[in-house]
Write a protein that binds this DNA or RNA. Structure first.
Lengths: 210, 210
DNA sequence: TACTTTTTTAATCATTTGATTAAAAGATTT
DNA sequence: AAATCTTTTAATCAAATGATTAAAAAAGTA
């Protein structure tokens, strides 16, 4: 059995259509994507989309679900690892996300958009169970840290927001940032690579502030 | 002459349509918005949209331009004020943006989306001149600070990204954040109010790190 | 090979959607 | 009041779009 290549050359028609749809949907969003765009991108006939996936919406749901799982699933292993410290978890999470975002820079805006378009729908489809963070290792560790009183009394939600903001937002704003700064894609990605080490330091500095 | 109220009750038909369009466009984006949605939201006949604005796209362009001006124009006064320190400018900018975002939480995602959909188009329409930051007061002050060597040697673009990320991203992620944390809109806005003071402190801490 | 099943295509359908038109309703001017 | 101009509406058009159909092409099976 050979390893699955990044872009499967001998993928089935169904998978090729799905990958084409993923590209078009993530680039243009649900509403702006025509089934004909997907057909063209995949190189197959328009009717095959409905032959394999019943409808544009069903195809979209599949892709959105996979995106969300890509975002959530891999993370659960990190946040619930009892063998790493809190600091290590933060570093691993940020590093993991930046790696993924460099490969898939369009995903955040895509996901944020569709959540915004209909929050209830998404929540129902993915299932709320996806993140019951009450008894996760990371939650316990944070509580322990807070108990030591060595950290600021600021609402911890702020630091969660800060971590996510510093990690994800640059990718969402990438087109403007690159245009305003004149950075190439490579230079931009190099900065993102730097942030793997920097963001944890910044977060630490923020937590210790005041 | 009486002062203009927030929601003009005696606004002209043209203005009412524009405001309806602003609401629908910012909520759903360009592609997902039907001219009929705008007609319904405004309470007027479909044909009036083209009577006053020629086309859906022209109407959209007007609104997008106003949004971008709201974002950029008011800021120029702050960043080019020679009477304030760099620290003061950062505080003013963040405070100013958070105020605006609390009032218009849908704008960032809307703008980011449309920039992503067609970066060139937007850049052309708004005009690149909008931000020639070379000889602005804030740029000079940053150079002075960098010259003192009291700050870290990290690429200053990081700190620009960080400031923007910490300020804007929570609004973009608001639906998920509120859902995951169980915060009400009021509680969320209260957190944003706190951030007016916190973000400048955090930025300061980050700049001084290492 | 002949038969069956699966995959793919071209053509077509029914709605939706942005836009136009002609006429009605309202306002302004003479 | 009559005439003219502006605003608004209902009806309609043409193109776009999601989906279906019937048949061709390909693959599998006897």
């Amino acid at each position: 059995m050979k390893t699955k290549p990044e872009i499967e050359i001998n993928a089935s028609t169904e998978d090729k259509i799905k990958e084409a749809a993923r590209r078009v949907f993530t680039r243009k969003g649900y509403a702006a994507t025509r089934t004909r765009d997907i057909a063209e991108e995949s190189g197959f006939n328009l009717a095959l989309i409905n032959y394999y996936f019943r409808s544009k919406e069903k195809l979209f749901d599949i892709i959105m679900l996979e995106h969300l799982q890509l975002f959530l699933h891999s993370v659960m292993g990190i946040v619930n690892d009892h063998g790493t410290t809190l600091q290590e978890k933060i570093e691993l999470l940020i590093s993991h996300y930046i790696d993924m975002l460099v490969k898939n820079p369009d995903i955040p805006l895509f996901v944020l958009n569709e959540i915004n378009a209909d929050p209830e729908k998404l929540i129902k489809k993915v299932g709320v169970r996806a993140m019951e963070h009450k008894d996760l290792a990371i939650a316990r560790q944070w509580k322990e840290l807070a108990a030591t009183k060595k950290i600021s009394s600021i609402n911890p939600i702020h630091f969660l927001m800060n971590t996510v903001s510093l990690t994800i937002f640059p990718f969402v704003g990438s087109p403007i940032i690159r245009h305003k700064t004149g950075l190439s894609m490579e230079q931009f990605n190099a900065l993102m690579e730097e942030r793997k080490k920097l963001i944890p330091l910044w977060i630490k500095a923020m937590i210790e502030t005041k």
